[in-house]
């Protein structure tokens, strides 16, 4: 029974996850704590972990909650449920897309959407920067963070560094520098 509940809950979360980011965290919290699956404090921990580990937050939260409640089976059920809406909606849109993407109207629309994406990513950069700096204990750590971030920006944007290698180096730098 709890597997069915897990499935329905995370399917719902998947449906209402638009545009990613922090908007759906409130929804996830409400769904999970109101069912007594987790306390509010535990949820904050999960969000912290989900942000620091790779992968979409919704997927991370689903795997975590499912595993803590039921074990491996729960993790798989909750995770499948949270990605199912993606699969359905994207496949539906893809069909439509192949048919219409070369029409002039759609081309014009996308010519307007492309710069919007630039603005959205820029806004995300600002949000992630403020949240990260806010979470650090003192000015020295913040300065170090800004220096590392600038180095990665320069290397990836202008020197064709591999993003993966850059992140691995950042983790190592963190081990050495962030005391």
């Amino acid at each position: 029974m709890i597997l069915a509940q897990l499935f329905l809950t995370f399917f719902k979360i998947g449906i209402f996850t638009f545009g990613g980011g922090y908007a759906m965290l409130a929804l996830i919290q409400q769904e999970i704590t109101s069912r007594g699956w987790m306390t509010a404090q535990e949820f904050v921990d999960v969000v912290g972990i989900a942000e620091m580990t790779p992968g979409p937050i919704a997927v991370n939260a689903a795997t975590f909650v499912g595993y803590r409640l039921v074990g491996m089976q729960g993790a798989l059920v909750a995770t499948s449920a949270v990605v199912l809406p993606s699969l359905i909606s994207v496949l539906a849109v893809s069909k439509f897309w192949d048919k219409y993407r070369n029409s002039r109207g759609v081309q014009w629309g996308f010519a307007g959407i492309r710069p919007v994406v630039v603005g959205l990513v820029g806004a995300a950069a600002i949000m992630v920067t403020t949240a990260t700096l806010h979470g650090l204990a003192h000015g020295g750590l913040r300065l170090t963070t800004i220096i590392i971030a600038s180095g990665v920006f320069y290397g990836v944007a202008f020197r064709k560094w591999s993003p993966i290698k850059a992140l691995i180096i950042c983790a190592l730098l963190g081990l050495i520098i962030f005391k």
């Binding site: 170090t144 944007a157 983790a171 963190g174 081990l175």
Partner: peptide, 29 residues
């Protein structure tokens, strides 16, 4: 130790998102 490594990672993520903004701006704007 994990905490420290994550702090380094978070700094790298900032750089990556800024690089993303720059890269797609070149194509999109």
């Amino acid at each position: 130790y994990l905490d420290r490594a994550f702090n380094g990672l978070k700094a790298g993520v900032i750089g990556l998102i800024c690089a993303a903004t720059w890269q797609i701006a070149k194509t999109a704007v």
